[in-house]
């Protein structure tokens, strides 16, 4: 690659050619190791990625929330995050949406193994993924949270809603949902309104 390629790196987007090939890499893994192998690799590499990022410390919750919203925290390295309540946060555009669109444009329908792996994740890990990419994204968030301290306490993350490119929304079971929404300080109706405008709704907090 050119030396000039490294100029203004901060805002350059990925090449969709690469994005699509990563999806195909996971499909190849599933050919050899099944849906379980697909899921394990997707989760495992997200954990590894998160463990590679630098740790962070913030004195106050407001300092952390401000760093996340301005894209300065490692938590928002790959997505634009907006704070909607003290502990409620949303991502407007899924950082995988471009890769998903490009896959569909160039190759066609998604290989069914992506949905099978998503179901496997929802049944064996937690019922929060709307697409296979959510497994990577939510695992990354969970692991990155462990590397961030606010007021000396570790950051906690819990997924509330995730919307797929098909419009399908993954939500937690009713009993969890109420607890999570209460903790985020938003009503169920507000939660649905947020999911109409955004691709992901989640909770970030520290234990009191």
């Amino acid at each position: 690659m050119n030396e000039g390629d490294h100029m203004s790196q901060k805002n350059i987007e990925s090449n969709p050619f690469v994005d699509v090939s990563v999806f195909l890499f996971f499909e190849d893994i599933s050919d050899k190791q099944g849906v379980e192998g697909f899921t394990n690799y997707m989760v495992g590499q997200a954990e590894s990625l998160a463990k590679s990022v630098p740790s962070e410390e913030y004195e106050t919750w407001d300092d952390f929330a401000s760093a996340v919203a301005s894209g300065e925290s490692v938590f928002s390295s790959f997505e634009n995050i907006e704070q909607i309540s003290k502990f409620g946060f949303v991502t407007k555009n899924c950082p995988f949406s471009k890769a998903i669109r490009e896959y569909i444009k160039r190759i066609g329908n998604f290989n069914p193994v992506h949905m099978e792996a998503t179901d496997h994740y929802n049944h064996t890990i937690q019922p929060s993924a709307a697409h296979s990419a959510c497994m990577m994204h939510q695992t990354y968030r969970k692991e990155v949270a462990k590397r961030i301290k606010v007021g000396g306490k570790p950051l906690q993350y819990a997924q509330i809603g995730a919307k797929a490119h098909t419009g399908q929304i993954a939500l937690p079971p009713e009993s969890w949902k109420k607890v999570l929404l209460d903790k985020a300080g938003i009503s169920e109706t507000q939660g649905f309104m947020e999911m109409r405008e955004n691709s992901c709704l989640y909770l970030l907090y520290v234990d009191e």
Partner: peptide, 21 residues
């Protein structure tokens, strides 16, 4: 090919995560 398709990825990885493994 003007720009390697991995160039943006490498750049963001180095910037956000650290050295390429």
């Amino acid at each position: 090919l003007k720009t390697c398709p991995m160039a943006p990825t490498m750049g963001r990885y180095i910037l956000r995560i650290g050295p390429i493994p």
